[in-house]
Design a protein around this nucleic acid. Structure first.
Length: 575
DNA sequence: TGCGTGACTTGCAAATACCATA
DNA sequence: TATGGTATTTGCAAGTCACGCA
């Protein structure tokens, strides 16, 4: 367990309800995460409501009335009909196979070809429903909102030790069709309905236990304070366990987050030593040491993920550093005016493409050539290495060090450097642009991409229109000001005109900054790094140093998640 | 040492809430 | 006062990493 740092200040948070210094409370050393835990259990998915009689399903052009279970699964497909998913062969095949399991024997004998199924009436019906929902009166909408709020109040909170905490996801996932990312072999399979009998409740013995719905029982009620989850169940697609856990604003998550950044800061202190070490290891006599050293170099330099091995055929084919294959890199002794260039091209987490060309040192290049010798494209690049070996090595180099700490460290240090480099003492919008650019540098490093928004072009146009209008307004107002001067109008009038010009100039600049920011951000996602990789104290310090309102950088949710950092960091904080 | 499993973090896209504008 | 565009929230899939067992 790393030693926790000492808080710098001791100011009271005046605007938060429950969180006063909880990140300072004593922690147990025996691995227990709480002493008392009480909650109301999960909110189950609403039961299936059969379709009204007028909504029909046709098979091979003929009307076919489906049994309720078969109909329910059919509606899952119908609801996705407009999505590209439903056109994919794998999706259709998996769906059809699972759908048949829900059919009566009569249905099974009648329905033999998914391509003869006509779901359009169902699809239209759901579209109409969602349209109707949009058209509801204000009153009706308000009612729904209030009901949701009531459920949130009842099920959305728990008591952990002395705090009332927000729960992250208190609803059980409803049944539906599994949508994997990328080329997932299980896409379209039926995600079955979770019943109370599937659910494990975790709470403290001396708490009021959540009650299962009338006539049902939980699979188990346990009292395990070595874990943080409140509810769990096993999902049927991969057989993995799903959990209900606390919101990021909670003590237990905040503390863990803080600890994560402290580990990264400890890496900062010894990273040069480690770099020297792996450079030395490039020369090692042992192949496994050289592979380890080159992999670590990639992880450090390119912020690659560790790359656990995956079960073939169970998930999409994606890789990280240790699982890179020969086919994922190309070596160029010379490329343009650079020497020893490595080209990376592979699908990473969530099947996001990683493409990069990087000149490396000769020694790395020579090692890579050696690793590639006598191998097929589908062979592992690092055949003497996996994440377990790598992490064991890292653990020996520094307590608590794992591959992902490098990502956290490099992300945070990059933000800090970039902020230092980019921020100038200009207007607030200019500072915000600098901040976003620093954030962007990190997102690019970590390969956090997004699909360009569908409305991107239009949105840029809209902004440009606004800019043009503002420009016109500015020149008009300037003209007026000139006119006023020549006519020797009252100086009072003159001054207010000057002010107006200034104001419009500011507005124009703000718009231009926005446009630049948006353009640069077209395919970059800032959220993930902001939420998971950037030590929030860097941002808090920056905000204080440059007098930028906190809410320009962190929205409400983010301020709640980072309450600990906001309380802790002063303007001189150094990561 | 390898492997399966459990707990927890990270990640993108879709859904929804919110707000400015016609 | 509806509309449409943006910001925020939610949903849940897909990673990482430690641990226990053979």
């Amino acid at each position: 367990m790393p030693v926790e740092p000492i808080r710098k200040t001791n100011r009271l948070e005046t605007n938060t309800k429950t969180l006063t210094f909880m990140w300072e409370e004593e922690r147990s050393t025996d691995g227990s995460k709480w002493k008392f835990l009480e909650h109301k259990g999960p909110v189950l998915a609403p039961p299936y409501e059969p379709l009204p009689g007028h909504v029909r399903f046709f098979y091979d052009g003929k009307l076919l009335r489906l049994s309720a279970p078969a109909e329910e699964v059919a509606t899952f497909f119908a609801k996705m009909l407009d999505h590209e998913y439903t056109t994919k062969e794998m999706f259709r095949k998996n769906f059809y196979k699972d759908w048949r399991k829900e059919m009566t024997s009569e249905e099974k004998s009648k329905i033999t070809d998914i391509n003869k199924c006509n779901f359009t009436e169902m699809s239209e019906y759901f579209k109409a429903q969602s349209e109707a929902r949009k058209q509801m009166s204000k009153d009706e909408k308000l009612k729904i909102k209030e009901e949701n709020e009531r459920i949130l109040q009842e099920y959305g909170f728990c008591v952990m030790d002395n705090h009332k905490e927000r729960i992250g996801n208190f609803r059980i996932e409803p049944p539906g069709l599994f949508r994997g990312r990328g080329d997932h072999p299980k896409m379209g399979m039926l995600k079955r309905r979770i019943r109370p009998e599937d659910i494990i409740i975790n709470c403290s013995k001396d708490s009021k236990h959540p009650k299962p719905p009338q006539g049902t029982r939980w699979k188990e009620v346990r009292h395990d304070n070595k874990v943080t989850w409140l509810v769990s169940w096993t999902e049927n697609i991969q057989g993995s366990i799903k959990y209900i856990m606390l919101n990021p604003s909670s003590r237990i998550k905040g503390e863990k987050d803080w600890q994560k950044y402290e580990t990264a800061r400890r890496l900062k202190k010894c990273v040069e030593r480690l770099r020297a070490q792996y450079r030395e290891d490039w020369k090692s006599k042992e192949m496994r040491v050289r592979q380890r050293a080159v992999a670590l170099y990639f992880i450090d330099k390119l912020a690659l993920r560790a790359g656990n091995e995956k079960e073939e055929g169970e998930t999409a084919d994606t890789v990280g550093c240790c699982s890179l294959r020969v086919e994922h890199i190309k070596l160029y002794p010379k490329m343009d005016d650079q020497e020893y260039v490595v080209e990376f091209d592979f699908l990473g987490k969530d099947s996001i493409r990683y493409y990069n060309k990087m000149p490396v040192e000769k020694r790395v290049f020579k090692n890579l050539q050696l690793f590639l010798e006598n191998k097929q494209p589908e062979d592992d690049l690092f055949d003497r290495l996996n994440t377990s070996i790598l992490n064991k090595h890292l653990q020996e180099l520094m307590d608590g060090l794992t591959a992902k700490v490098f990502r956290t460290y490099n992300a945070s240090i990059t933000l800090q450097q970039q902020l230092k480099e980019l921020t100038t003492d200009e207007s607030i919008p200019a500072k915000i642009l600098s901040y976003n650019r620093a954030n962007r540098a990190v997102a690019i490093l970590c390969n956090h991409q997004r699909a360009a928004p569908k409305t991107f072009e239009k949105s840029m146009q809209n902004l440009q229109t606004k800019i043009d209008e503002k420009q016109k307004q500015l020149s008009a107002t300037r003209k007026q000001l000139k006119g006023a001067k020549t006519e020797h109008k009252a100086s009072h009038d003159d001054r207010s005109k000057k002010k107006a010009v200034q104001r419009i100039e500011e507005q124009l600049m703000k718009l231009q900054m926005q446009a630049t920011d948006r353009e640069e951000n077209k395919q970059i996602a800032l959220g993930t790094s902001k939420l998971n990789y950037l030590d929030p104290r860097i941002s808090v310090a920056w905000v204080k140093k440059w007098d930028v309102p906190m809410e320009k950088i962190y929205n409400k949710t983010q301020r709640e998640k980072f309450a600990w950092a906001i309380d802790m960091a002063e303007e001189d904080y150094e990561f």
